[in-house]
Design a protein around this nucleic acid. Structure first.
Lengths: 225, 225
DNA sequence: TCTCTATGAATGAATG
DNA sequence: CATTCATTCATAGAGA
């Protein structure tokens, strides 16, 4: 069995669902509907995430750690010990921009380009050119390396199951999830980089029928036998 | 790379795809299942928005409207705890082997070596190559630091830092998303079966925004190299 | 539950 | 670029 990646735009979702791995299993209408909904919800999630990020960057919620470099120079000079190490931490906004550039760009930006990027990012927080340079270096190296993550089965030793189940408390906010989940089984997900667009393939299965999904905002992934 | 089925063996996936489950037209029941999932997704998104709104009352949320593409409410039965492992924990046996390799080895193993080690350790529990990699990195770094500390000055350890006290606070609201998506693209999730119904929680992310999704009808599977 | 600590993981920067 | 180092974050697990 071989899974292949199909790059492209939204229209591929239809092809993939209808003709892809699963064969033709849904009516056009169904696929249309599904497609719309998925697109809608991914957009929603995106918006939520954006909001969350921008808020996290600008507001001091108790309990939320703010990057050391976010604090304005004034309060820094006023008197807190600045003895802390000076390591650049990209703000969410900066990261977003960098990521975007990385996706379209082909390799490490030229020196000139770095200058530009740095000055642009400087609007969203302190940054230097070497920061940008390093970031791209690291970004590439790490996306290249990227180990395969194989998640093992629940092994004998690590499965007392029932006893450990109740003492496991989820973080605040996750509770509502319980309303939708009745026990969860293991799941595998894996992605790798390819091209400018990111796709993720999610393949799942159960007794009733297997199922797979492509998310357009994820990197491509594939699996084969 | 290959797909493996955790419970039930590989023939299951094959059978399901070829014989049945996926090869044929999606049944009404299956379509119904899909609809439910979408509804669940919708509800989750709404919950997210609510959470977000409540934690930021002073912000303008007028832009966010969550569409309900399906109105039939999903009345999911109250579920169980989600037992997702977020962090690899080496089994005693694995640790033993790692230590042994570390002692004789000359620093961080090569990529090839890591593969070998990982596959060897996989016999004793779930593990990934990056786990191995990280372990060696940490092992070396920490033994080094320990050495430095023991030989270095003693008074250097003065770190009153009042601000560290409150950073212990648990995540609030949407922050839990960040906990799951620390720049990783692969992840795993595992749970257990309960009753007749199975649910899968899919947590994904890319560098731009995190995302999650629920699948309700999958059997566990995982992938290895 | 709460706190504390060991440690897996992430990542900016440095070195080869 | 490829590796490695240094530092920090977050969590699992133990103890109170």
């Amino acid at each position: 069995m071989e899974w292949e990646i199909q790059h492209g735009g939204e229209e591929n979702l239809q092809n993939q669902i209808q003709n892809g791995v699963c064969g033709k299993v849904m009516s056009d209408e169904q696929v249309e509907e599904l497609k719309k909904q998925i697109v809608a919800y991914s957009a929603i999630s995106e918006q939520l995430a954006e909001l969350h990020k921008s808020m996290s960057a600008h507001h001091d919620f108790t309990g939320i750690r703010l990057g050391k470099l976010y604090c304005d120079p004034i309060s820094a000079s006023v008197g807190h010990k600045i003895t802390a190490r000076q390591r650049w931490t990209p703000s969410p906004l900066q990261l977003q921009i960098l990521e975007k550039i990385y996706e379209q760009g082909i390799g490490t930006p030229s020196k000139q380009k770095i200058k530009e990027i740095a000055s642009e990012l400087a609007q969203h927080g302190p940054i230097s050119e070497s920061n940008v340079y390093n970031w791209f270096q690291n970004r590439r190296a790490r996306s290249k390396r990227k180990f395969q993550v194989s998640t093992g089965s629940v092994n004998a030793e690590s499965e007392p199951d029932v006893s450990t189940k109740e003492k496991k408390t989820k973080p605040v906010g996750l509770d509502f999830i319980d309303n939708f989940s009745q026990g969860v089984e293991s799941f595998y997900f894996q992605g790798s980089e390819s091209g400018t667009k990111m796709w993720h393939l999610v393949l799942c299965q159960n007794h009733n029928f297997p199922f797979f999904f492509f998310f357009s905002f994820f990197k491509s992934s594939f699996c084969r036998d």
